[in-house]
Design a protein around this nucleic acid. Sequence first.
RNA 1: UGGGGGAUCGUCUAGCGGUAGGACGCCGGCCUUUGGAGCCGGCUACCUAGGUUCGAUUCCUAGUCCCCCAGCCA
Length: 564
Amino acid sequence: MAEGTNASNFIRDIVAADLAAGKHGGRVVTRFPPEPNGYLHIGHAKSICLNFGLAQETPGGICHLRFDDTNPTTEDPEYVQSIQDDVRWLGFDWQDKLFFASDYFERLYEFAERLIRKGAAYVDSLTAEDMRTYRGTLTEPGRNSPYRERSVEENLSLFREMRAGKFPDGTHVLRAKINMASPNINLRDPVLYRIRHAAHYRTESAWCIYPAYDYAHPLSDAIEGITHSICTLEFEDHRPLYDWVIEQAQTPHRPQQIEFARLNISYAVMSKRKLLELVEKKLVAGWDDPRLPTIKGLRRRGYTPEAIRAFCDHIGVAKRDAVVEMQLLEHFIREDLNKRSLRVMAVLKPLKVVLDNYPEGAAEELDAVNNPEDPSAGTRKVPFSRTLYIERDDFLEDPPKQFFRLAPGREVRLRYAYIIKCVGVTKDPQTGEIIELHCTYDPSTKSGADEARRKVKATIHWVSTTHATQAEIRLYNPLLIADLSKVPTDHDWTTYLNPQSLERITGCQVEPSLKGAPPGSRFQFERLGYFCTDLDSTNDSPVFNRTVPLKDAWAKLDKGQPPR
RNA sequence: UGGGGGAUCGUCUAGCGGUAGGACGCCGGCCUUUGGAGCCGGCUACCUAGGUUCGAUUCCUAGUCCCCCAGCCA
């Protein structure tokens, strides 16, 4: 985490105290342990920044990347790849510490036999339904399974037969023998292994029994020598179980589980389950759809790793449930892009302007600054000629009081160019629509010429019609949900999605320099906000993605108010 | 009703017995070679009730509200 923030991070304090006390031999080893069952989103970024950040802050500290791939039915190598890409893109490095829980299956199995031998685990043959009944409820204690007192020998041979594939799915499980009357339901003999005759994306058909999270996770941490095992709040009452497994397995290393509040962002779809549903039902273009809060979506939206990291630093790490406003995320990308993106001129809704007193066929190149906040970004030449496009909105035939831009008889400055005066308006005789404007330019007012510093009320942007290149702009609003927590499980998504989440604007005219812009380059169109070129675009004409701020997104919704 | 957690501006947070600070946001104003940029100013908070104390956001007690847990998911 960056210095200079006053955002809380109680975990950093714990780590510092442990370090000072010489705990864990003065080492800090953290891990980011995703299950490869989906793409990473901004919520994962918080965990990534936390775990990798903690390791970075400590001399000799390291953060592992471990795939928690203990459930063969949900996992896929595609996700393994995308997760690695995203962590790297965010700017973090696991060095050679890339691990897979599935690589520990054999050792985990040996630990299980050890538990059986010491009478700490048994094979249960209840059906899933019966097991639920025996577990009791939140207020009533559970009852012991009739299979709970099987002998060590019987348990051992049953467990070996489970591994050997002698039984179909669901017929037996290995359970920890803890306490069926525990007020903590997680301690009522939790399942350690289940039978799953399914191919695993890495171990293929080598196994038909798979360890459960509560069993595999603490042991994986112990095997890797993790010192601080950081997870989210919902695992708080799993901690006694985490410690129980470590204790029973007698591992030489004892990791420590610490919980923090997961990130929620207002109106963003953040659950993997729901994101998967959106992708599978093709309600979005894919995991990298710019309307999604996935890392890849944010990236296509124009977000930078730096902005995401700054955001994560700012929001802090605490134990209280929190919902961060999306405006805060937007603030960090605006701040970052302001410093680094090149300013260019673009006209979204073109209106042709003819400069009557500018020589026909002539052209000149004018100097334009690339970034007013960063002189090192340099300048570029912008071609100027007799016919230009200006923004339709920058002209009004009958301007109201507060309108200072172009109007008949009125003067305005063209950015980086001259002051022009509107002397005529050409309309379509049929429709009355304004087709073009006739103006005169004042040659003595060329930008930068200080003898002609006449003041005008407004400055507008423009592009030369003969030099401009056409572009398509896609405006992506975030996918808003009226109230995510109220969305029923089997709902119709379309009623909750922002109907105007994607808008295409074609026929835009942009500076010629944008034609060869590399994919993903970021620009700020003067007065119009931030854009990046499409990361996928192989088109000749540029396609831009634009981040639409929430405020504007709301304005486009019916009531113009945040949904509540 | 069992267990585990958590409550400070609208939002995210700082605070560790001594004037409640920052950031986002919002509202004004300025800037006019374009702002959704920049600059200036303003806005609003300690869950409640008792107690301890010269003094409580902080300590104690009793409540209230919110979140999580009854997958052979993670």
